[in-house]
Design a protein around this nucleic acid. Sequence first.
DNA 1: CTTCTTGCAAAAAGTTTGCATCAGT
DNA 2: ACTGATGCAAACTTTTTGCAAGAAG
Lengths: 163, 163
Amino acid sequence: MNMRSSEAQRIEERLGRIRQILQSRNYKLTPQREATVRVLLENEEDHLSAEDVYLLVKEKAPEIGLATVYRTLELLTDLKIVHKMNFGDGVTRYDIRSEDAEHHHHHLVCLHCGKVDEIMEDLLGEVEKRVEREWGFTILDHRLTFHGICHRCRDKVNPEDYK
Amino acid sequence: MNMRSSEAQRIEERLGRIRQILQSRNYKLTPQREATVRVLLENEEDHLSAEDVYLLVKEKAPEIGLATVYRTLELLTDLKIVHKMNFGDGVTRYDIRSEDAEHHHHHLVCLHCGKVDEIMEDLLGEVEKRVEREWGFTILDHRLTFHGICHRCRDKVNPEDYK
DNA sequence: CTTCTTGCAAAAAGTTTGCATCAGT
DNA sequence: ACTGATGCAAACTTTTTGCAAGAAG
């Protein structure tokens, strides 16, 4: 994998900060946990299932068990380091959170190729204000996913077939 | 349950139209399927899991099997009569679709009491236009869920505890 | 030592499938 | 009789848990 050094460096920095979060809560960044976090950082763009993470971690640390991956992902979720999400296939997917707490993101799920793209911009500012005001609901988080046909598949398929 | 006759009548009407959809595709509205659809119509406001549906159907038709409920829900999903959705707990939930195809709805999941409220208004018109234009994505469906504290629980809890 | 963490295997939870049987043409 | 639909049980998938053993202060 061709990774620019600035990219590798960025990963080390984030790993360091994550180590600190764990330590400040009296958790250790064990080799298994470190390998898991590295996989998540190296695949920030993707939305990996627990099984995906397990297989990738196994390449670096073959002795790890699936249960440990689950336990680690749960721990990281509790610490708000990763996001747990569902796209409607029966699998839970995990995503390392951006460090910028306000940096919401949304998903574009292509029904043809299955790829999931992200929108890193927050599109919901106005909508949230309305919901808080008109429904009396205090918003702590949101999930916005569009299902449709991505720009890559646009010319290949007829959207009607996916309705 | 105190149900106004207009409500009961509305259910019969919708059931009739659903029967027609099934028949036009050569499926039968068997007693089991009818009981399942009735449960969904009578609980339109809720978001029932397969198990929930099963237990409710059992009250009317005790001989039904869980597998039949799953098969019926899958059939209804294929026919776009129900919506299949996930809120992040490990359970798939089902929701009968409004007959008005344009009638989108969104969800408000309360992290304190667990209740899921619906917003029947479409809040995403403008947002969708932007996504189609700026990301070249053809939108066929969307899922918008807010997680937070509902108006009923607002005074009972501190939202910070759920961050 | 004491506490946290791990791997393994077993269990649990949710869903799907195979198959013999049943119901409605 | 033929076809589709059902009930039951078994299989399968994903996730969680119990527990004895291991690592780290």
